[in-house]
């Protein structure tokens, strides 16, 4: 479990998020939603220790995040940024980088590391691409390679910053199905999503943010019924029951 208490954070001494109190339970998917500039990514970066908070305390498995060494923390928490440089590297070597927190001084992967990397590649159906350069892959395939790297990192908590942005609808849904599989493996997923419908359909919890603060943190149903989404985004919405019994959400402007 990861817990944030009284967190204020931002960039260049400018506060972006303030008084954040939230905890993410193990084996759940939480989507952080909100308007542009409300502090979603700042919250994600702060919670994953990429950004040092101005004040407050973050703890992972009941231990302050500052008490972990870099590599110890990387074995507990992983973060997949939205904007990444695309290095000139093969799929296999990139996924192997996921084992970095576990490598010794010689940085030589052991048999156990190779087995975990092979499993991650298999899990993401990337076996036919292992020797391909990731620069030759499509955006959707590339995202799967990065998720395979996160799988190889084998952390309990995974932060994903807009994992479906720039992908076509088929790849968006494929990535969200993968996120569900990660949850079934016992991982805690916290992601920023812009697509409200997908966020409500695929998540166990929704964290709706407004002006650097949490407006509501509840189940998708609870957040939807609160009317906060309509109020904050200034949109209308409708809940639809689909054939398999699940609920889908439609948002529109009148």
């Amino acid at each position: 479990m990861i817990k944030l208490e009284d967190i204020s954070s931002g960039y260049n001494k400018i506060t972006i998020i303030k008084d954040i109190n939230i905890s993410f339970n193990q084996g759940t998917i939480t989507s952080i939603i909100g308007k542009n500039g409300c502090g979603k990514t700042t919250l994600l970066r702060t919670a994953s220790n990429l950004l040092k908070p101005f004040s407050g305390k973050i703890s992972v498995a009941d231990k302050p995040i500052t008490d972990y060494s870099d590599k110890e923390l990387a074995r507990k928490v992983s973060f997949l940024p939205q904007l990444r440089s695309v290095p000139n590297i093969t799929v296999y070597n990139l996924v192997m980088h996921g084992r970095y927190p576990y490598l010794g001084f010689s940085r030589t992967p052991q048999k156990h590391d190779k087995e975990i990397v092979d499993r991650a590649i298999e899990e993401m159906n990337l076996a036919s691409y292992v020797n391909k350069n990731i620069q030759e892959l499509s955006g959707g395939q590339r995202q799967k390679v990065y998720i395979a790297m996160v799988l190889a990192q084998n952390s309990d908590i995974i932060f994903l910053d807009e994992p479906t942005t720039y992908l076509d609808i088929n790849h968006q849904l494929e990535i969200l199905q993968i996120v569900k599989r990660l949850k079934q493996m016992g991982k805690t997923i916290i992601m920023v999503l812009h697509d409200l419908s997908n966020a409500l359909s695929y998540s166990d919890n929704i964290c709706l943010m407004e002006k650097g603060q949490i407006a509501i943190y509840d189940s998708p149903e609870g957040v939807y019924k609160s009317g906060k989404i309509e109020e904050i985004f200034n949109v209308c919405s409708q809940q639809l029951a689909v054939a398999d019994g699940t609920k889908q959400y439609v948002f529109y402007i009148e």
Partner: peptide
């Protein structure tokens, strides 16, 4: 090897435990 990890970009590298 650490330079290879750094080539992934600052955020990815830091998330992998690289100082």
């Amino acid at each position: 090897y650490d330079m290879n990890v750094l080539a992934l970009g600052d955020e990815s590298a830091k998330s992998l435990g690289l100082n």
